[in-house]
Design a protein around this nucleic acid. Structure first.
Lengths: 359, 359
DNA sequence: GTATAGTACATGTAAGGACAAGTTAGAGGT
DNA sequence: ACCTCTAACTTGTCCTTACATGTACTATAC
C-alpha cells in the first residue's frame, strides 16, 4: 500500500480492482462497479477508469460486455499464471521424454505453464521459434541449442530476447558466446569413462562413432580420444566415424558395415548414443556376428533400456529427468529473483550391463 | 480493404499500422510515424491514435518508448502466432511421447505453438489447468480427459472455455455429456480382437486386468467380455482384475501373483496395456514360470516394443503419432473455419509377436 | 574541446464533454 | 397474460485541452 505521490491514478484504480479480485470480494464472473461508480469513488475522470479497465482487460483480469457491465475473469483456483518456453531439438525419442517430463512436473508444481516445441535440429526452426516467443507472454526460456557445435547464427535473436528480460537456461549444451544459466552433462568425462572401461576390459582396437554438429558429440569424441591417448592405445585409421543430422539415419549402420569389412575389424565400438548403438548392433547382427561375443558395444544416454536380441546395453547414464527438474528449478529461482545465473555440470555414470566382453 | 462506414476510426489506424508491419514497410525495430503525424494523416484526435497504439501494444505488434517513439515489434519470420493448449494425463511413458510429438510437429508446421501439460490423472490438476488457459491467449485445446470413466466434475469449466470460442478436440477418450471434436481409438474392438486372438489360439482359461477409472479401460474390458461371450468361453471367478490410478503400480503384479497361486491358473492374460503387461510378466518370471510357454500374455498400445526376457510382446497397435497428427489437423481445420466438429475413430490392429502360445 | 542549458519533439497522464450502441427492467397498452 | 415502448444504465467511440516526463540535438558558455 505504498501510495507514492508519483503513482498514476489509473494504477491506483488497477490495484484496487486487482485487490477486489484477488481477495475474492468479487468472484469469477461477478460484476465490477460501473465506470461511473468508480469515477465517483476515486474522484477521477471516466478516461482514467477506462485506461485502468483497458489494461486489466488485456492482462486478462476482467472482461467487458457492452450494455451489461464489466466482469471478473479472474479465478483464484487458476494456479498457472506464467509461461515458460521450452525448446529442444527433439521431443520424442532419445533423452527427451525424460527431460521434458522433469521440466513439466517442476514447472506446473510451481504454477508455471510449459510452451513446448522442438527444432528437429534445424537452425531456421530455432530462429522462427525464438522470434515468436517475444510476441507471447513468455517469461523464461529453457533451450537446448540446435547444432551447438556449428556457428551460433541465432545469437542476435537470443540477445534480443534477453533484452526483453526473459530468463534463460540452457540444457544439454550451451553456446560459448552467450553467457547464461545452464544444466549440462559432462560429456567429455562420459566419453572418457566409456572408452576407459573398454580399454580396461582389454580392448585395443576400439572404434568410435560420433555426431559432430552438436557439442555433445564433439565432447564425447574428445573424451574418447583423450582416454585412448592417456592409455597409449592408438586409434586405427578409419576407426572414427563422424556424421551429422542429415545422415544420422543411414550413417551409423553403413559405417558399422564398413568397420566389419576391414581385415582387422575393431573389437569394440563406442557409439554416440544408445539409439545409434542399436543401429550398429543391427549391422553386426545382419552380418552374422554377435554382441558381445564378437564385438563389444557401449552406448550413451541410457535411453533404450533393452536390446532387440535380449542383450542389455552397457552405457553412460544421462540423468534426464533430474536435469529437467534442475533446469526448471533454476528457471523458477531466476524468475523469482533468488538466483542470478546458476550453472551446474552433472557427472556421468557408467552403467555396466552385458554388451561388452572382457577380453 | 472493406472500408465499412461502421468501422471505428481506431480500427482503421490499427489496420494501417498492421499493414505497414506485415508488408515490411517498417521492419522489426523500425520507427513508426509519431502520434502527431498519424493524427494529421487520418484527421483524427490523438486519443484515437493512442487507442489504436494501445491495442497494438497489448497484441504484441508494437512497443513504445517514452521520449523516443513507437517501434515495430513484428517479425515477418516469427512464424508462430497462436497457442494451442494440450493436456494429457501423462507426458512421458505409455503412448504419450508419440501422441505429443505428432501433435507438436503438425502444429508447428502450421504456425501454432503448443502449451503442454499433464494432469497425472488427477482431476484437481485438470481443473487448475482449465481455469488457467482462458487467461492466456489460447485459441484451442487438445485434451485427453482425466479419469474419463468417472463423473465429469469439470464440465462447467469446459463449457466456460467453449463459451470463450476456444476450439476443442478430445483424444483417446471423450465425455458423453460434452459434445466435441474427437480422435479416438476403438478400444472396445481392440479388447475384442485381443481376446478373440487368444481364444482362436485355443485358450479357454483367460484372465483380464483392466484400469477402470478411464474410458479406455472400461471399453477394453467390455470388448474382452463380449468376445468371451460371443465364443461361449466362461469367465472364471476372480479372473478379472480391476485397478485404478492410485494402485496402478502395485496391483498388476499382485493380481498376477494371485492368479498364479490358483489351482487352475489361467493359460493367458489380457493386460490393459504394455506397461502393465511387463509387470505381469515380471510376476510370472519371479514365480518361476515362463512366457509364453506357461502363460500367454497379450498387451495393448504397442508402447514398449521389447520385453526384458527377449520376448516380444503381442499387442494391439495404438496409432499414437497418427492420432496426434490427426488431432492437431482437426484443431487447425476448426481454427481456420474449414471444419465444424470433426470426429474419427481409429481401428485397432493386432500385432502378433511371440508372447502368446498356440495351445 | 567539452560541459550545459535550452528547445523541439516524442510519449504519458489526466480532465471534461458529446453522442452511439447494447441491455435491462418497468410502465403502459392490448 | 403478453407484448411493446421507453427510460435508465451500461460500455464504445471520439473529440479538445493541458501539463508531465523522457530523449535527442544544438547553440552557448567556459
Amino acid at each position: 500500500m505504498t501510495e507514492d505521490i508519483n503513482t498514476p491514478k489509473y494504477e491506483l484504480v488497477k490495484d484496487y480492482v486487482k485487490h477486489l479480485l484477488k481477495e475474492n470480494v468479487i468472484t469469477y464472473g461477478g460484476k465490477l462497479p460501473s465506470e461511473h461508480e468508480l469515477m465517483e469513488k476515486f474522484e477521477v475522470s471516466r478516461h482514467t477508469i477506462r485506461q485502468a479497465f483497458g489494461e486489466l482487460t488485456s492482462e486478462g483480469y476482467i472482461f467487458k460486455e457492452q450494455g451489461k457491465g464489466t466482469f471478473s475473469n479472474y479465478r483464484r483456483d487458476a494456479k498457472y499464471k506464467q509461461i515458460v518456453a521450452v525448446l529442444t531439438t527433439y521431443i520424442a525419442g532419445f533423452v527427451f521424454p525424460g527431460i521434458i517430463s522433469g521440466i513439466e512436473e517442476t514447472l506446473s508444481d510451481e504454477g508455471y505453464m510449459m510452451l513446448l516445441s522442438n527444432t528437429n535440429n534445424i537452425k531456421e526452426r530455432e530462429a522462427q521459434y525464438l522470434a515468436s516467443i517475444s510476441e507471447h507472454n513468455v517469461v523464461g526460456l529453457i533451450i537446448e541449442p540446435t547444432k551447438s557445435a556449428r556457428e551460433n547464427t541465432n545469437l542476435k535473436l537470443l540477445e534480443d530476447i534477453r533484452s526483453r528480460d526473459i530468463k534463460f537456461c540452457f540444457i544439454n549444451a550451451c553456446y560459448d558466446d552467450f553467457s547464461s544459466a545452464y544444466v549440462l552433462l559432462d560429456d567429455y568425462k562420459g566419453g572418457y569413462m566409456a572408452t576407459e572401461y573398454l580399454i580396461q576390459l582389454g580392448h585395443r582396437r576400439i572404434a568410435g562413432i560420433f555426431k559432430t554438429d552438436d557439442k555433445q558429440g564433439i565432447n564425447r569424441r574428445a573424451g574418447f580420444v583423450a582416454a585412448m591417448e592417456k592409455y597409449g592405445v592408438p586409434i586405427q585409421p578409419g576407426f572414427i566415424g563422424e556424421y551429422e543430422t542429415f545422415n544420422m539415419y543411414d550413417f551409423p549402420y553403413m559405417f558399422a558395415q564398413s568397420l566389419l569389412r576391414k581385415e582387422d575389424r575393431p573389437t569394440a565400438i563406442f557409439c554416440y548414443n544408445d539409439v545409434y548403438a542399436l543401429m550398429v548392433v543391427q549391422a553386426i547382427n545382419d552380418s552374422g556376428l554377435r554382441v558381445p561375443d564378437d564385438i563389444s558395444i557401449i552406448g550413451y544416454d541410457d535411453s533404450t533400456s533393452i536390446l532387440q536380441s535380449g542383450i542389455k546395453l552397457t552405457t553412460i547414464m544421462h540423468p534426464k529427468k533430474e536435469m529437467g527438474v534442475q533446469a526448471a528449478k533454476y528457471m523458477i529461482d531466476m524468475l523469482e529473483g533468488r538466483l542470478e545465473k546458476p550453472q551446474i555440470v552433472y557427472r556421468p555414470e557408467l552403467i555396466v550391463r552385458n554388451s561388452c566382453k572382457n577380453l
